[in-house]
């Protein structure tokens, strides 16, 4: 406990500065938050003056807590959860301890090896998207209609690979993805890759499902029971897909495998975001906000939901194409 307080403020300040610079630098615009967190942790190891493994792990733990704290307060995650950040940190720490146990007792040598391995690990996480796209695009066939939800970098790279490299002709229906409207952004990306896109409201989910041959979504976290935590609406999409017998695929990097076991929606970690505003967009002219600041009215803007494993057909990951039950097997192997 005492070492924790000793490490605190100046230490965390450097960590957070590091994280923010990673997030804001233009060359890293395509870097996911967990990968940035891993790089931050690598820097922590480089700077560390710890002489034991326990000391080093303590520093990493403090760095993790600091980053999670920043994510909660400063909203660097946007309308997203801190789950990928947490899972990225935890996996990296697991990686470090594993390397330590496999290595000799020489701490200096061990640190060198950990740094080396850590770099490759962070690098692997960057190439993950590429390998997921390679696995996933095999599931897309000529002339299909693909339904997706909001904007996901993994899904985008997958669809782009299918269209540009494999020259497949298919079309995409994308849900708007309120509140941040990732769907519109996704539509721009897809049309640039010459993929015909239709944008529909989130509430058109059932209407659009009838036309879809398959559903592909990204994930913020893949949880231990094989389900996924993702942008709000994914659960409803999964239920609709199941009801209409449409395959439901999830594309996610393995660094998003989280040590979470949600039992239902109420069991998810609460992510605080700002309150949303509501307006009638069909009216011509200026948008007039509808007042929801009355007594008896509660606005509940949950940003994530949990899709249980039984709604998921397959998961495209950098470890291969996995069934939901294989996820927990991977996690047991990682942490047991």
């Amino acid at each position: 406990m005492s070492s924790l307080t000793e490490l605190s403020s100046p230490f965390i300040e450097i960590v957070l500065k590091d994280l923010l610079s990673f997030m804001s630098s233009p060359s890293h615009s395509d870097v996911a938050l967990p990968v940035a967190a891993m790089k931050v942790m690598l820097n922590v190891i480089k700077r560390s003056k710890a002489i034991t493994m326990t000391g080093l792990l303590q520093e990493l733990e403090t760095a993790k807590e600091g980053m999670l704290g920043l994510a909660a307060s400063k909203d660097i995650c946007g309308f997203r959860s801190h789950i990928p950040l947490q899972s990225g940190c935890e996996l990296f720490m697991r990686y470090v301890t594993r390397s330590f146990y496999e290595m000799s007792s020489d701490f200096e040598l061990c640190i060198k090896e950990v740094l080396l391995r850590g770099e490759t690990f962070a690098g692997m996480s960057l190439t993950a998207r590429q390998s997921i796209a390679e696995h996933g695009c095999e599931f897309i066939r000529e002339g299909q209609v693909i339904l997706t939800h909001g904007y996901s970098r993994v899904v985008a790279s997958l669809l782009k690979m299918a269209a540009e490299k494999q020259k497949k002709n298919f079309s995409v229906i994308v849900l708007e993805g309120r509140p941040e409207g990732g769907g519109a952004r996704a539509a721009a990306v897809y049309s640039e890759a010459n993929i015909p896109v239709t944008v529909v409201l989130d509430s058109a989910m059932g209407y659009a499902m009838e036309k879809a041959d398959l559903v592909i979504v990204g994930a913020e976290g893949v949880v231990e029971n094989g389900g996924v935590v993702n942008k709000i609406g994914t659960y409803a999409l999964g239920i609709t897909a199941k009801a209409l017998n449409t395959p439901f695929y999830v594309a996610a990097e393995s660094y998003k495998f989280a040590r979470l076991y949600p039992l239902n929606q109420a069991d998810l970690p609460r992510v605080e975001t700002g309150e949303l505003r509501f307006a009638d967009t069909t009216l011509p002219g200026k948008l007039e906000e509808i007042d929801v600041k009355k007594d008896l009215i509660t606005v509940d803007n949950c940003v994530i939901d949990y899709t249980p494993a039984n709604y998921i057909t397959l998961l495209f990951t950098d470890l291969g194409v996995l069934t939901p039950s294989a996820i927990s097997d991977e996690l047991i192997r990682l942490y047991a």
Binding site: E224, N225, G226, Y261, S325, S328, D329, R333
Partner: peptide, 22 residues
């Protein structure tokens, strides 16, 4: 059954075979 609480954490019932192997 949503999950089994074991000393290795909570696992789905489908993972019993994996734990036995581990």
């Amino acid at each position: 059954v949503a999950g089994i609480v074991t000393e290795f954490g909570i696992v789905p019932t489908t993972s019993v075979a994996v734990i036995l192997r581990e």
